[in-house]
Write a protein that binds this DNA or RNA. Sequence first.
DNA 1: CGATATTTGATATGGTCCATAACAATTATC
DNA 2: GATAATTGTTATGGACCATATCAAATATCG
Lengths: 173, 173
Amino acid sequence: MTVSKTAEKSSEKPGDAAKGRKDAAEAQPEALQLGELSEQLGYVLKRAQLKVFENFLRCMASLQLTPAQFSVLLLVEKNPGRNQTEIASTLGILRPNFVALLDNLESRDLCARIRSTNDRRSHILVLTDKGKAVLARAKKLVATKHEARLNELLGQANREALLGMLAKIANEF
Amino acid sequence: MTVSKTAEKSSEKPGDAAKGRKDAAEAQPEALQLGELSEQLGYVLKRAQLKVFENFLRCMASLQLTPAQFSVLLLVEKNPGRNQTEIASTLGILRPNFVALLDNLESRDLCARIRSTNDRRSHILVLTDKGKAVLARAKKLVATKHEARLNELLGQANREALLGMLAKIANEF
DNA sequence: CGATATTTGATATGGTCCATAACAATTATC
DNA sequence: GATAATTGTTATGGACCATATCAAATATCG
């Protein structure tokens, strides 16, 4: 539902913050009414998702990992010995689009493609030592900076309830 | 976090559904372990968002309205007399990208740009009669087919709690 | 066995959405 | 009245998503 990632660069310059205010009984043109929009699940869901991704990227800035890259590393670690098709399809990534993603991770020596001896068509995916180390650091960053922020905002119980409902939507809707 | 919109076209042809099963104590290669991925808010959030948008589009197929277009119509209806910049920025749409979106709605006679007499640079946005009628029908479809499905899945109370938490994330994260 | 179909990774390509720079017309500022 | 700022717009590039197609390898079946 709309909702871009742009920062709202306020046109207020630091010096003259009082310029926008009106003198007396004038119409104040600011602040549109969202109305029913704020009750639309899709709208709120998308805005929340953008904020979460944005924060994720900030937390991962030092490691230069996108959400997609992080999810690939996590899945390869948990499922060693799987090929590209299996990893990609589990994440909902189409095989053609997975190639460039892997090229990137492999060029940074975070994971490797290994020709399978059973089926010489497929590439078995594994994390390199550096990949494992980076993933470990990434997990710590996510836990301490990203998810911790959510617990602080929602509380542990609410955060788990939120996750459960979202999973239900993702799986049963 | 990854997660495309593709259908999981199961490679099982209707006739031979038993082909994937193993005979006895062989390794069953199906079903990867999601592991910590299912605890990552960003991952679940994105998957849920895609499902919700997908369902929204199905519900709106007869009216040919995307989530973004619907949100514009809603906002213009609630805030008549605003210009493009105001409507776009409230929705998080950048002005350049808003032009084509409006061109589309205007070409379908759902909304209209009117040169403001106060400031002849800006275009005041209003819904046409057809636009109001279409929006009314869209609201009904969303309420009866889209949001109703969610209430059925989560229950009224949970759905409201979900919306509240998402709004909190969207605004305070 | 051998012809045909299927699978895997890959390339090419097009679409959509998002973001920035730049421009003409108009208005605000000083 | 000169300069700066704003509005809508165009052009353009990037990121992501989706489909068709291909060569190599494998599976299937006559």
